[in-house]
């Protein structure tokens, strides 16, 4: 524990002590007890650890904690307001896009990043945006349906 990092996570400022080799994923799990961001492969392939850093989707398992000094981070825990689900969470829930739930936080954060940048994506654009997030349960169809439905809902 030899470095101090200040950052904003889900709207709250934190200053935490981290080890040199800690990743953002370690910081979220071990320093802030935020377990919603998942660890699937530890090498940036599966996308289960996707979070937003200063509005951009990043892989928390490949991002060193030192890199997020002063950054604004949003995780799956930061999307819902009080009891109100974010539109992406709502369509994932309503359209059956959730099975085991392990890829879900990363999928939702990646979808969020896409929709923030491009509120009216085509189906192909959704496919392209989610290509780095693996799901082993769903065959992706309902996940893509859910992201498309957000567009329709707004």
């Amino acid at each position: 524990m030899n470095q101090e990092i200040s950052l904003v996570v889900n709207g709250t400022s934190h200053t935490v002590r981290v080890g040199d080799h800690w990743t953002l994923l370690d910081l979220l799990h071990d320093a802030l007890d935020l377990k919603g961001t998942k660890d699937g492969c530890g090498e940036g392939v599966c996308g289960a650890c996707t979070v937003l850093v200063n509005g951009r989707a990043v892989r928390a398992c490949l991002t060193l904690a030192a890199y997020v000094q002063g950054a604004e981070v949003v995780t799956i825990e930061g999307l819902a307001r009080d009891d109100e689900l974010d539109p992406v969470q709502r369509t994932f829930l309503e359209l059956g896009a959730v099975q085991c739930g392990y890829c879900t936080p990363g999928m939702i954060m990646m979808s969020k990043a896409l929709l923030d940048e491009n509120p009216n994506p085509t189906r192909d654009e959704v496919r392209e945006a989610l290509a780095g997030n693996l799901c082993r349960c769903s065959g992706y169809t309902k996940i893509i349906d859910a992201v498309m439905a957000v567009r329709g809902a707004d």
Binding site: K35, G36, T37, T75, I76, E77, L79, A80, L85, Q89, R90, F92, L93, E94, G96, V98, G101, T104, P105, I108
Partner: peptide
């Protein structure tokens, strides 16, 4: 929606 889907989309 499955009974546990809400918790899952919240990452809980």
């Amino acid at each position: 929606p499955r009974h546990d889907a809400r918790e899952k989309v919240l990452g809980r």
